[in-house]
Amino acid sequence: MALKERVAILISGRGSNMDALIAACQKPSFPASIELVISNNPDALGLDSARKAGISTQVIDHHSFGKDRQAHERQIDAALQAHNISTICLAGYMRILTPFLINNWKGRILNIHPSILPLFPGLNTHAKAIQAGMKVHGCTVHIVTEDMDQGPILGQAIVPILPFDTEHTLAQRLLKQEHILYPQVLKNFLRKEPADCSTEALLNG
């Protein structure tokens, strides 16, 4: 059996996309193993989920570093190196990375963003899509670069925006597609295969 790629996940909160990645990586045929979960938030609910799954966790609280973002990331980098990580997945990590970490892990940091990029980068994407009168909304897995939410796109999924959708209902329906898309894209990325997550296959209400 081929060795699995060693993956780390960075979270700040509940980590539902982390849970989806962990579940996928537990399958023998999946080409990755989650070896480390790092959070900048000591109260992140996802830490308990990771521990229950038997995964090493580490809290590197950004508040301890004041405004020195690079010092914070140097400690993250040291933890990643110590665990022999090859690929990083951001899953609700609410910190903008500096060039230090991005360049040290160039082309090896993936992120999932809740919009059909390049539409609606940044925060409040569900509200923005509804306010813009969009008929569809979606999520994107992309490689992280120094330009926020503008890295190469690896896969996307869409859902319809229904007439009576609110931010909450749209977010909940889209989250189900995020949980499908992220593991599939990670698998394809590690196998150096093109994405096979067509929007038609993932479109549902």
Rank of each mutant, 00 (worst) to 15 (best):
A132G: 09
Q150S: 14
W105T: 02
E193I: 02
A201P: 00
V144G: 03
T125Q: 12
A79K: 02
L101Y: 05
F100V: 05
M94L: 14
T140A: 01
V185N: 08
Q184K: 13
A195D: 13
I76E: 01
T98P: 10
L190R: 04
L174C: 12
R95T: 09
D165E: 11
E167L: 08
Q156S: 04
N103P: 02
R191S: 11
K67F: 09
I88Q: 06
E73W: 05
N103Q: 14
N188R: 12
R173Y: 10
K192C: 09
S86P: 05
A79G: 07
Q81F: 07
H83P: 07
D68Y: 03
D61C: 11
Y93H: 05
H137I: 00
P163C: 09
I112G: 02
T98Y: 04
R95V: 12
G138C: 08
Q131H: 13
R74F: 06
N188P: 00
T166I: 09
L175C: 09
F120Q: 02
I116R: 12
H83R: 15
L117F: 07
P118R: 04
K67N: 13
A195G: 14
Q131D: 14
G133K: 08
I76L: 14
V144K: 01
C89T: 03
F189P: 03
I116V: 13
L97H: 01
E200L: 13
S86I: 05
A129F: 07
G133P: 11
K106W: 09
T140D: 05
G122K: 10
R191E: 14
W105I: 03
A171L: 08
H142V: 03
G151D: 03
N204K: 14
H83L: 04
G138P: 01
L162Y: 06
R108N: 11
H137S: 12
P118T: 05
V185D: 04
C89S: 02
T98L: 01
Q70I: 15
T125A: 13
Q70E: 15
P163K: 08
T87Y: 04
D68K: 10
E73R: 02
